[in-house]
Simulated assay, not measured.
Amino acid sequence: MALENLKPAQGSTKDRKRVGRGQGSGMGKTSTRGGKGQTARTGYKAKRGFEGGQQPLQRRLPKVGFTTQIAKPYVINVEKITKVAELAEITLDSIASVHKFPASTLKIKLIGKGASGLASKIKDERITTSGRA
């Protein structure tokens, strides 16, 4: 097998772009760098995401990916929802029978006037009270 006949396939290679070799080459004068300014200089490198001073996209969008581990309780105002205050025993199931709340609810906090008086009726550790007596 003759090694001198090995050549790259036709059209698979291109000649190197020779810039700055006169106007007749079509790549003379500014050497394909456009006009003047920062981008025409040697050593110029735009920082990733830089948009010419405009607020970059990654800073315009909100941060995502963090969720707090502290679950906020679902709050029920016993002044507005009086059916909760009228219950004999206060548990998550008994509240669900008189008031609709999300299924993902882990804790309930009773607030409003008279909420602290309901502390003796609470039979579930996931329910807390707060408010004026």
Rank of each mutant, 00 (worst) to 15 (best):
K80V: 15
S120P: 14
Q23P: 01
R132H: 12
E89G: 02
H99E: 08
A88F: 07
D124M: 13
I122E: 12
R33K: 12
K80R: 10
M27Q: 08
A9H: 04
P102S: 15
A85E: 10
K63T: 07
K107V: 04
K113L: 14
T67I: 01
L87W: 10
E125S: 15
R21G: 02
T68P: 03
L92H: 09
K80H: 02
K63V: 07
F50V: 07
K83G: 07
G22F: 08
S12C: 11
E79Y: 05
L118D: 05
K17D: 15
G131F: 09
V98T: 03
D15Q: 13
G43C: 03
Y44R: 03
M27H: 15
P62H: 05
K17H: 09
Q10W: 05
S31Y: 00
N77D: 14
G49Y: 05
K63P: 00
L57E: 09
V64Q: 05
E4T: 10
E79H: 08
L87E: 09
T67K: 06
T32L: 07
G35V: 00
T30R: 13
M1R: 07
T91V: 10
R126S: 12
T42Q: 04
R16L: 10
T82V: 09
S31K: 11
A71K: 15
I95A: 06
K83N: 05
F101K: 09
K63A: 09
G117R: 13
E125W: 05
D124V: 09
E79T: 12
R59T: 02
K47F: 00
V78T: 04
G112D: 03
R16W: 09
V75Y: 02
G37F: 11
N77R: 04
K17V: 13
S104P: 00
G117Q: 15
K83D: 12
A119Y: 14
K109D: 02
E79N: 14
G24A: 14
F50L: 00
K107R: 11
T68R: 06
P62L: 01
V98C: 06
K123C: 04
T32S: 07
R59V: 00
A2W: 03
N77E: 11
V78F: 10
R21P: 00
A96E: 12
S116R: 11
G26A: 06
R33L: 12
K17E: 13
G112N: 08
K17S: 11
V75L: 02
T105I: 07
M27V: 08
H99F: 04
V64S: 07
T68E: 08
R33I: 02
A40W: 00
R16Y: 11
R60S: 10
D15F: 08
K17N: 02
G11M: 06
A46R: 12
K7P: 01
L110W: 06
R33W: 00
G28D: 09
I81E: 15
A46M: 04
G22S: 04
G34L: 03
K100W: 03
R33N: 12
I76Q: 06
Y44I: 13
K72G: 03
G35Q: 00
I76P: 06
A96L: 11
L61D: 02
K7Q: 09
S94N: 10
A115M: 11
L6F: 14
S31F: 08
T82S: 12
K121N: 14
G11A: 10
T39S: 02
V75Q: 05
G37E: 11
Q23G: 14
G65V: 05
G53D: 05
G43S: 01
D124Q: 08
M1A: 13
I127D: 03
V19L: 14
T67G: 01
D93K: 11
